[in-house]
Simulated scan of single mutants.
Amino acid sequence: MVKDGLPNLMKDLRTLVQSHLPALSGRHRHAKRGFSILTVLLSLTLLASILVGFASVVQNRTSRVAREVQAAQGELSAEAGIALIVASLLDNAAHEESHRRPADGTPYACTLDNGTQLFMVAQDVAGRIDLNTASRDLLQALFDKQADPEKSAALISAIESRRRNDGFRMVQEFAQLPGVDRDLYAHIAPDLTVYSKRPSLDEASARQALRTRLARTGIAKDIAYASSADGLKFEIDVIARTAPGRGYRATAAVEIRPGHMPAYHILFWNGHPFRSESLPPPYDGWLAGAGERQVASCTSS
């Protein structure tokens, strides 16, 4: 009986297992399908993160390249501005002396074909106060109203001390003297040079703002203006504004050589990116005095 019941028991167990296999197999398939969906979602999340990071890298690199292109455009435009000024100075030198336009530091502006605005100044060095040779009276008049008497005396003493040593090789060295802050330098520097080699000024070449300031000090005209124009050496300043608040500024001192090759010689050159919404002296007063100026094309006749 037991012998006969054992096969029946095995048969019943086999039937029971087989009846549950479809259900077990279905749960396995659902679990497998769920795992596959989770894997896909994780992969998509990872891919999205990679794409976002890549887009950020591309955007940063694109912005950096755009800034570099803009900086290069500003530098080249400033150099073009200096070339325009030199050409104008050479043309002016070709005229009779009585018909030459004075290079008195009056700003002017024009727009290049690429949209860059050029703000430019050209001035005969005789219209500026030479840090190495200007008389004490002229220096006192220069600092009058710009500094109190004690500070003014200290500045003149520092200038004279520098002269007894190496002297000034460039105007920028004036900023290194004790007591010269950024504001004082910004207002004084446009009227300084190291290339005049004169104790006084040529009145026709001096900026109107400097002439007005000196007149208020009471300095005698025969002390302030006892020199004539140099006619060959000039201080040049160019700001190339490529966008609001951005651009490039180049300053140079040149000596023109009419009838010779090369036609001019660079005595000094300095350039740097320009970051400011407003223009510095001497352009600020020039713009304010004329309101909204219409800037013509640099190539217009």
Rank of each mutant, 00 (worst) to 15 (best):
Y195D: 07
L138K: 05
A175K: 12
G271P: 08
F174T: 02
G34T: 13
R128I: 00
A250I: 13
L214R: 04
Q123E: 04
H99V: 04
D148Q: 14
A109V: 06
I85E: 08
A243V: 08
H28I: 11
A226C: 06
A175L: 06
R257G: 01
V69C: 01
L38W: 03
T111L: 03
Q172A: 15
S43W: 09
A206W: 01
L44K: 12
S77T: 00
V52N: 13
A72E: 11
A109I: 02
T15A: 15
Q18Y: 11
V238H: 09
D237I: 05
A226D: 06
P280W: 00
I129P: 13
A93K: 05
N92G: 03
A147F: 08
D183H: 10
T116S: 03
F174D: 06
R207A: 09
G26D: 10
T111W: 01
E97I: 09
R257T: 08
A55I: 14
S25Q: 15
V125K: 01
R293N: 02
V57P: 00
L6H: 00
T299N: 12
H99I: 06
Q140S: 14
F234E: 07
A215M: 05
A296D: 12
D91P: 01
A263T: 13
P280F: 02
S205P: 08
